[in-house]
Amino acid sequence: MRMIRLRGTPSERGQAYGAQARDEIDEAVRVYRRWFASFARMSWDEVRAAALPHQKWLEESSPRHAGEIAGIAAGSERDVTEIVALNFRTEIAYRAVGGAALSECTVLGADATATIGGHVYVAQNWDWLTELLPVTVLLDVEFEGGRFVTVTEPGMLAKFGVNAAGVGLCVNLLGSDTHGLGGSFHTLAREVLESGSAVEAAWAVTGSRRAGSGNYLIGAASGELVDLEFNPVGYELHFPGNGTLAHTNHFLGQDPGVRDRLRFLPGLSPGTYFRQDRAQRLLAAEAEPGVDVAGLQRILRDHYGAPEGICRHDRPAGGGREVLGQTNVSVIIDLTAAELHYTLGCPCERDYERMVLPWA
């Protein structure tokens, strides 16, 4: 996984990002042109037009991020609407999509009460389009007042990662029948990674307008662990039971204020419910002796319910009615030790690499 270091003003960071990742961004645009056409039945011109209201909202409400996105566009020699479309791809596609859906990531967390040595962990399998695995990047970003690293798709501001204040973020998709204007799944992730504490990170989402739905697992080296479900009209916080948290691709809150996509899209697989139960049970079992990196690796390699297991391989389910992502990256963030353990591709097929975070 290629590391890209970014420094300076938002515009300078964006231009450096765009220039260094130009080939990867070109490939991401090619992948998403195909994906929007097949998944959302949208031409790329229609996608760019749909990005315009989000671009205007960013320029008015989040000028730092708008400036960085404009810099990425300039550095990569792409139109700015294309970079906006990458950063708002979830919101644009789900507003347009009909009866299809994607089933994606599993996130796991454990706080000091459930772990060996009192560590705090957040972890996930990022399940998404196989074609994006070769161009996935690791950004090392110094911003005004801090520093973070994030694993993300080229051209995007952030996805999952950790910052020098010890705040870690893992993410997974939720879908609902409600859409709006506001921060996207990926721009809100950037807000979390620029936060100085778990409370500030949650506030960055709960206190903002939100264009779509999602789930963030937020942890901190200081001990906090919280799972935050959000959508354009509301949010709900979930705290650890017996020191652990797991989340898949449906709302756990009793009244999220929206209809979960599984409640209104016909014919979707109930696999997310199986995965949720499996992840919770495996975490509880690991917590008996104490969760550690090896235990989280065992969970992230689990195939129960295949092809809709925690560890995902590139094959369709449900007679092609639902698209499943392959596990492109598996990551465990040890917030206490300031370490990141990861695999590129399915974790059942390779060893985890260990990276000491640059500020440790």
Rank of each mutant, 00 (worst) to 15 (best):
P316I: 07
G325I: 02
G99S: 13
E142D: 13
E229S: 10
N87L: 01
L174T: 02
L262C: 02
D260I: 12
W126F: 15
L237N: 01
G71H: 08
R350N: 03
P256C: 01
A101S: 11
R64K: 12
A201K: 11
V323I: 13
E339C: 15
P232Q: 02
V31Y: 04
G325S: 04
A114V: 07
A306T: 12
S76Q: 06
P270D: 13
G223H: 08
L108M: 08
E200C: 05
L228H: 11
Y235H: 15
W35E: 05
G145C: 05
L193M: 09
G145Y: 04
A73E: 05
L52K: 09
E286T: 03
G234N: 14
I25F: 13
G345F: 04
E60I: 11
E59S: 08
T113F: 10
P134A: 04
L300C: 03
A360T: 07
L283M: 11
A287F: 08
V120D: 04
V331C: 13
G180C: 09
S38Q: 05
L237Q: 09
Y121P: 01
G320H: 09
A338P: 00
Q276G: 04
G271K: 10
M156T: 01
D351T: 14
P10F: 14
G207P: 10
R7V: 03
K159M: 09
G175E: 03
A338I: 02
N242C: 02
R190C: 06
V258G: 03
A164E: 10
V80W: 00
D255R: 15
P270I: 03
S76T: 03
F274N: 03
C105R: 06
T336I: 01
G175N: 02
T152W: 05
A96Y: 02
V149D: 01
V149P: 09
N125D: 13
R301Y: 03
E200I: 02
E77R: 15
G146P: 07
L132C: 07
L262G: 03
G320Y: 09
R34T: 09
A317S: 15
F251D: 10
G109V: 13
V293C: 10
A40T: 01
G295P: 02
R321Y: 07
Y17L: 09
D277P: 00
S61E: 14
S208P: 09
T206I: 07
T81I: 00
A221C: 13
L129Q: 14
R5A: 07
G214V: 04
V80M: 05
A19E: 12
G14F: 12
D292Q: 01
P358G: 11
A21F: 10
E12S: 10
A204E: 12
G305Q: 13
L139N: 11
L245C: 00
V192Y: 08
R278T: 04
F264P: 01
G168D: 01
R312M: 15
G18D: 13
G166V: 07
P270V: 01
